[in-house]
């Protein structure tokens, strides 16, 4: 190129470039004017004098990959041009954030590490729009997050919310079952006490202690009796446990599936270990609600409640989703698709 040609080229046409190194070690040459739109890069250039050559390239944060860097530079290239109308900028921004969620997350992270606030705001708003109104399951699916919370932890925010009549009804059912278990436990204890009543005379006892006339056969039979009694008790325990867990059985296409809810587990625990009832002081202990009702009607209600619990458990994931939805008033509606009636809440 001749000197005359060089003279024709205006200084602003000779754009200065700077060197940037991304997380994977690749080095790119970028127009300084555009790169300086990012406060972090601007800082590095002004304060440390970095980026002037390939050997002293500006090392970008770990979260900035070559792909996200090119996206960020596109954004900067558009926005650093003066004289663009707000409408143009808005239109560009809307198109710019039309990308998959994974890339949007990476872009937010990269923009944040480069301290590029306008882009962070833009991408954050886009992500907020994605999240809003979604259930935890949907959010997990969108962002490919692990489902590492236990059922109890998922329900934690709702454990004290008893507005939903279905939750109240289920708690009532559990309370009823607990009451039955307590009754059984009490009767069992009474039986055991009765069996242990010793009607032998003092002389007999003394002779037994001294070992006189001690028939080994008799001792053996008493041991057998004890064994039989233990067996009986075990059977009773098992039957009560079975009943408690049957609350959570659901019939799906003829197959019996068991839903292990936290409450059922607790009931099982109480029936296994001879501890006093841990639910005695529970907020929802309204098992005595039916007292004074006609027995036939009571039986009918109990049947309905058990049937209801079965249906409720089959619909648990959907219910979770609904419970987390807004505190607006919602109506209860009953649907019966394919003859199997189930409950669902509709706005």
């Amino acid at each position: 190129m001749s000197e005359i040609d060089m003279a024709v080229i205006k200084p602003e046409m000779m754009k200065p470039y700077i060197w940037l190194e991304t997380s994977d070690g690749s080095i790119q040459q970028v127009e300084q004017e555009i790169a300086m739109y990012c406060p972090l890069i601007c800082q590095e250039i002004i304060q440390k004098g970095m980026g002037s050559s390939k050997s002293c390239a500006i090392c970008l944060p770990q979260r900035v990959s070559p792909v996200t860097l090119s996206l960020i530079l596109d954004y900067c290239r558009f926005h650093q041009v003066p004289g663009r109308s707000n409408k143009e900028r808005k239109s560009y921004d809307e198109k710019f954030i039309r990308m998959d969620t994974k890339r949007l997350c990476e872009l937010t992270s990269a923009a944040d590490s480069l301290q590029l606030k306008p882009l962070v705001d833009l991408t954050s708003r886009a992500l907020a729009r994605i999240i809003e109104g979604k259930s935890p399951e949907e959010i997990r699916e969108i962002f490919h997050l692990p489902d590492d919370l236990t059922e109890e932890e998922k329900l934690e925010p709702l454990k004290n919310t008893t507005d939903d009549p279905r939750i109240r009804l289920l708690n009532r059912l559990y309370a009823k079952k607990r009451k039955e278990l307590r009754e059984r436990e009490r009767l069992k204890n009474v039986e055991v006490e009765e069996e242990h009543v010793d009607e032998r005379s003092v002389d007999d006892l003394l002779s037994f202690i001294n070992g006189n006339d001690g028939d080994p056969k008799e001792v053996k039979t008493s041991k057998n009796k004890k064994k039989n009694r233990r067996k009986k008790e075990q059977q009773q325990k098992n039957s009560s446990l079975k009943e408690a867990s049957e609350v959570n059985k659901v019939e799906v296409n003829g197959q019996s599936i068991r839903h292990q809810s936290a409450e059922a587990d607790r009931i099982a625990e109480t029936s296994n270990s001879h501890t006093e009832d841990v639910f005695a002081h529970r907020e929802f202990d309204d098992g005595d609600i039916d007292d004074g009702i006609d027995p036939a009607l009571k039986e009918k209600i109990d049947r309905e409640v058990e049937d209801f619990a079965r249906r409720l458990n089959s619909d648990w994931p959907e219910r979770m989703q609904e419970l987390l939805s807004s505190g607006q008033e919602r109506k209860m509606m009953l649907f019966t698709p394919n003859g199997n009636s189930f409950l669902r809440r509709n706005a």
Binding site: I131, E132, G133, K134, P136, I139, L145, D147, L149
Partner: peptide, 9 residues
């Protein structure tokens, strides 16, 4: 939504 998000992971 914040309360919902606390039950994600």
């Amino acid at each position: 939504t914040v309360i919902t998000a606390s039950g994600v992971c």
